[in-house]
């Protein structure tokens, strides 16, 4: 469904700049959880932003092809891209406290997605928001919907962010370090949620993380990113049992 080939992104500076991503490529199929694992600074967040074409102006895309459902995203007009964001591809960010607008209620922010991507009436949207919140595991959705982001606990905020991302029923969810700021039990719960999203809602997930242990039992396929290059990729079983790259071996050692 998502095919990335030969993606290279450079950070220009006084010299020719360094390559943040170096000929990166991988594929994600339908109903598949694909995990991209790498250390900080490896460029993994940038890939997620690159797919949605939300890269900062400071970065230069030197080469690459990004195809979503066979169509070349890099050729899309601004308007087509905008229609795609949220509706076909959703994104969840690392720090939900900063990723939510502090001045608006959580329910309203989720409702926004529906307002601009669906034709539902006000009442229908309201119901769907409550529904979404329940789906992501927030039982007292009616109360939470009226709260401001800073009033939610970390775990609830992350779930609300996921609810916002899947609100318009996208086919692909990009999750950028979704659990870095949560404790272990909450992490497990979010992973369960992702599993549910894949099996019940048939959403593919690009899970970007630095924690291999997290995705051990969750991902179908995995790619390891080291200093901007994909050093290993394949089915999770294979990579974990027969790692070929030193860095992968290093990562594996940290989780067993």
């Amino acid at each position: 469904m998502l095919a990335i080939q030969n993606l290279s992104i450079r950070i220009p500076d006084e010299n020719s700049g360094r390559l943040l991503l170096d000929h990166v490529g991988f594929d994600i199929q339908k109903e598949e959880i694909f995990s991209l694992v790498g250390g900080s600074g490896s460029g993994k967040t940038t890939i997620g932003l690159a797919v949605l074409r939300l890269l900062s102006e400071a970065l230069k895309m030197e080469s690459g092809v990004i195809k979503f459902e066979g169509q070349d995203l890099l050729g899309f007009s601004k308007e087509r891209m905008r229609a795609l964001r949220g509706k076909e591809i959703g994104m969840v960010f690392q720090e939900p406290l900063h990723a939510f607008n502090p001045l608006f209620r959580v329910g309203a922010q989720i409702d926004e997605v529906l307002r601009f991507h669906t034709a539902l009436s006000r009442k229908d949207r309201q119901e769907r928001v409550i529904d979404l919140l329940r789906q992501v595991g927030i039982p007292d959705a009616l109360r939470v919907e009226c709260l401001y982001p800073h009033q939610l606990s970390g775990g609830m905020r992350q779930r609300a962010m996921i609810a916002q991302a899947i609100a318009a029923s996208p086919k692909l969810l990009i999750a950028d370090e979704p659990t870095s700021n949560l404790d272990v039990t909450l992490q497990a719960k979010i992973m369960d949620l992702f599993r549910k999203l894949k099996s019940e809602l048939k959403i593919s997930i690009l899970l970007i993380t630095h924690d291999l242990g997290l995705v051990k039992h969750l991902a179908d396929k995995i790619a390891v990113l080291y200093e901007g290059k994909i050093v290993e990729s394949g089915k999770i079983q294979e990579v974990m049992e027969h790692p070929k790259n030193d860095f992968t071996k290093l990562l594996l050692r940290t989780i067993t």
Partner: peptide, 26 residues
């Protein structure tokens, strides 16, 4: 420069909403 503006764009909101509702209000 804030994260929530990035989120708003990732949600696929039209630019005028990003600027006049999210950015302006803050």
């Amino acid at each position: 420069r804030q994260q929530y503006i990035l989120t708003a764009r990732a949600k696929g909101l039209p630019e005028h909403r990003v600027i006049y509702r999210h950015a302006l209000r803050n």
